[in-house]
């Protein structure tokens, strides 16, 4: 296992009852790269991302995070809860619905893992949490409760919460999909600056512009399979793939014409 690979997936299958959502995914996520997962709704991209955090348990295949198997080993023995938690520590997650805890302030949300998981003393946890809030530009909102923040601010707090645990990889599950259009910019800017700092990121997104400009690695999923994958520029430069072309035409009204020339 090369240590340049942050996450590897081999033959990953996920079913819900008789509905097979992922049909044997092989994928490598490299360190220091931004990987964008795009595809039509129902293509399985969110499920794939959630499998990478073991929020969904894959039914077959092997997922390794930083070299270690996630959830199940190669012989498909279920790993103990502590081992799952240990491997998961490499990963931070940002959700579509933010999922901030409503009974904690912004600072409390970010400090929670530092206090309860890393067992940092209160002062130290709060200082580190504050530093992360500052990084996402919300130092002045530290004492606000989630209900008192806009959607964009909540999502930035959620990013700070994920970063505070010092993950090697951050997964983003449609981070701007439940935001008003004028609020997506502030979240995308934070993500762009993270990418510039060399953070390994996997992003499920409908923001094709973000994917085109920020991603190094682009994965187009269709019907539970990787339909197309490669350097972002290459994929968008050759939209000869009929499904990708169709997808781009449907999902973009203005952007597509620019990209498709």
């Amino acid at each position: 296992m090369s240590d340049t690979l942050a996450i590897t997936l081999r033959g990953v299958v996920k079913r819900y009852g008789s509905n097979t959502v992922l049909r044997g995914i092989d994928l490598d996520i490299r360190h220091g790269e931004v990987t964008c997962l795009i595809g039509p709704s129902g293509s399985g991209k969110s499920t794939l991302l959630r499998c990478m955090a073991f929020l969904e348990e894959h039914d077959a295949g092997l997922i390794r995070v930083a070299g270690d198997p996630l959830g199940f080993d190669a012989a498909r023995n279920r790993l103990p809860q502590t081992e799952i938690a240990r491997v998961r520590r490499n990963i931070g997650m940002v959700f579509q619905q933010f999922n901030l805890w409503p009974h904690m302030t912004a600072l409390g949300n970010v400090a929670e893992g530092l206090r309860q998981v890393l067992r940092l003393p209160k002062r130290q946890a709060q200082e580190r949490a504050m530093a992360h809030l500052t990084r996402v530009g919300l130092a002045d909102r530290a004492s606000y409760y989630p209900s008192q923040l806009s959607g964009g601010q909540q999502q930035r707090v959620a990013i700070a919460r994920a970063l505070a645990m010092d993950p090697k990889i951050v997964l983003f599950d449609e981070p701007t999909s439940s935001l008003d259009p004028e609020l997506t910019g502030e979240v995308l800017n934070v993500m762009r600056s993270l990418a510039d700092d060399g953070m390994t990121m996997v992003v499920v997104t409908h923001e094709i512009g973000f994917a085109a400009h920020v991603a190094q690695h682009l994965v187009f999923l269709d019907e539970g399979q990787v339909a197309l994958e490669g350097r972002a520029g290459d994929v968008f430069a050759q939209p000869w793939h009929p499904r990708l072309r169709q997808f781009l035409e449907t999902y973009l009204d203005r952007g597509a014409s620019v990209l498709l020339g």
Partner: peptide, 21 residues
């Protein structure tokens, strides 16, 4: 919301911590 519990799992809280906190 299940996402609030998932968020706790993702930052490494134990089951007991998720219930309690």
């Amino acid at each position: 919301p299940p996402g609030h519990v998932e968020a706790g799992m993702c930052i490494g809280l134990s089951r007991l911590q998720i219930v309690r906190r």
